[in-house]
Amino acid sequence: MNTPFLQVMLAVIAKDFRAELRSRELIGTMLMFAVLSILVFSFALELDRIARQEAVSGVLWVTLVFASILGLNRSMSMERENASIEALLLAPVSRAALFAGKFIGNFVFTLIIGLFLLPLMTVLYNMPLVSGWMFVVMAGGIFGFASTGTLLAAMTVQTRAREALLPIALLPVALPLLLSAVKASTAIISDAAFDTWATWLQIIIVVDIVYTVVALLGFGFVVEE
């Protein structure tokens, strides 16, 4: 454990970004999926003006969750395919730092998708989605998804069912986050006063902290051997 935590974390993040810049595999897939999902939803739901206001945050979050699952699976199976995770584990660094690096990489990738979706959905659904609070809620929600998701993806990638198991394991655990995020987003879109939806933001923050601590502690056990 000679290398300091921060340095390891940054090195892992830099590695993931460099790989992504060269292959453009992750963001490309996630983005394409997200755009298609939004189009499919708008056809499938045939929303009128009022229904749109209620449904738009649900569409946004469902799309984000599935896009992030796609990304998490890719990011972990990439590590596994080339056995690069073994090389990472051989390094005399703390497992928590490795986790933090992978986690923040996944967090940023998903956040990029989210930031792209906001203006896109503003145009396609004709709803005022771009706002400061929306960004805060989105970052908070994705933070929790990414931390539990990184932990669970590291687990499910080692199972027989591989990719298929991650959504099954992640979705129920992520429900408190998803529900709070959808509620907060709907309130923001309908221009509700901050007091009326502040509880949701508090829940998101508390859940984020709890999940991240559990994931930090649990990751070391998941990748040991």
Binding site: M155, T156, T159, R160, L165, P172, Y211, F221
Partner: peptide
């Protein structure tokens, strides 16, 4: 239970199940 069934190595199964069991109490 599905996660448990998906893992062949008993040692790994116990570790993963333990972590998921702790996480699941949130729901």
């Amino acid at each position: 239970l599905m996660l448990r069934n998906g893992i062949d190595s008993p040692e790994r199964r116990r570790v993963f199940a333990s972590i998921y069991g702790v996480l699941a109490i949130a729901t």
